Measured scan of single mutants.
Amino acid sequence: DAPDEFRDPLMDTLMTDPVRLPSGTIMDRSIILRHLLNSPTDPFNRQTLTESMLEPVPELKEQIQAWMR
């Protein structure tokens, strides 16, 4: 099983494109984008959230890719 820090906190699946929300939570980009289609909010604190506020986490993405090899 993947380490917890590699798993999306909402869907508990392996992240492939991790992004940091303004709240500091790291999620998979595809999952948070799907959530934003229904509700333009951070799913953990209900603060306003837009796609432009998502910050890529390239170092975590590299760690996940290395773990998958």
Results as ranks from 00 to 15, higher is better:
residue 1 D to L: 14
residue 2 A to H: 08
residue 2 A to V: 15
residue 3 P to Q: 04
residue 3 P to G: 05
residue 4 D to C: 15
residue 4 D to E: 14
residue 5 E to D: 10
residue 6 F to C: 06
residue 6 F to M: 07
residue 6 F to P: 09
residue 7 R to A: 03
residue 8 D to R: 03
residue 8 D to I: 02
residue 8 D to Q: 01
residue 9 P to V: 04
residue 10 L to Y: 09
residue 10 L to F: 09
residue 12 D to Q: 14
residue 12 D to Y: 14
residue 12 D to F: 15
residue 12 D to E: 09
residue 13 T to M: 08
residue 13 T to R: 07
residue 13 T to N: 07
residue 13 T to Y: 07
residue 13 T to E: 08
residue 14 L to P: 06
residue 14 L to Q: 04
residue 15 M to K: 01
residue 16 T to G: 07
residue 16 T to H: 10
residue 17 D to A: 15
residue 18 P to F: 03
residue 19 V to K: 00
residue 21 L to C: 07
residue 21 L to Y: 01
residue 22 P to I: 04
residue 22 P to R: 01
residue 23 S to N: 07
residue 23 S to E: 01
residue 23 S to T: 06
residue 24 G to T: 01
residue 26 I to M: 04
residue 27 M to A: 05
residue 27 M to L: 07
residue 27 M to N: 02
residue 27 M to Q: 01
residue 29 R to M: 08
residue 29 R to D: 01
residue 29 R to E: 04
residue 30 S to W: 13
residue 31 I to V: 15
residue 31 I to A: 09
residue 31 I to H: 09
residue 31 I to P: 02
residue 32 I to R: 00
residue 32 I to L: 06
residue 32 I to E: 00
residue 33 L to S: 07
residue 33 L to I: 12
residue 33 L to K: 07
residue 34 R to K: 14
residue 35 H to V: 08
residue 35 H to T: 03
residue 36 L to M: 09
residue 36 L to G: 00
residue 37 L to P: 00
residue 37 L to F: 10
residue 38 N to G: 11
residue 38 N to E: 13
residue 38 N to L: 14
residue 39 S to T: 12
residue 39 S to Q: 09
residue 40 P to L: 11
residue 41 T to E: 08
residue 42 D to C: 07
residue 42 D to I: 04
residue 42 D to Q: 00
residue 43 P to R: 01
residue 44 F to C: 07
residue 44 F to W: 12
residue 45 N to P: 01
residue 46 R to E: 12
residue 47 Q to P: 03
residue 48 T to D: 12
residue 48 T to K: 13
residue 49 L to Y: 02
residue 49 L to P: 00
residue 51 E to P: 14
residue 52 S to K: 10
residue 53 M to F: 05
residue 53 M to Q: 11
residue 55 E to N: 08
residue 55 E to R: 12
residue 55 E to T: 13
residue 55 E to F: 08
residue 56 P to I: 06
residue 56 P to K: 06
residue 56 P to G: 09
residue 57 V to F: 08
residue 57 V to S: 05
residue 57 V to T: 05
residue 57 V to W: 07
residue 58 P to Q: 10
residue 59 E to S: 11
residue 59 E to C: 10
residue 60 L to T: 01
residue 60 L to R: 01
residue 60 L to W: 03
residue 60 L to S: 02
residue 61 K to N: 06
residue 62 E to S: 12
residue 62 E to F: 11
residue 63 Q to Y: 08
residue 63 Q to W: 08
residue 64 I to K: 00
residue 65 Q to P: 04
residue 65 Q to W: 14
residue 65 Q to A: 13
residue 66 A to I: 12
residue 66 A to Y: 09
residue 66 A to W: 08
residue 66 A to R: 13
residue 67 W to R: 01
residue 67 W to G: 02
residue 68 M to G: 06
residue 69 R to Y: 11
residue 69 R to I: 13
residue 69 R to A: 14
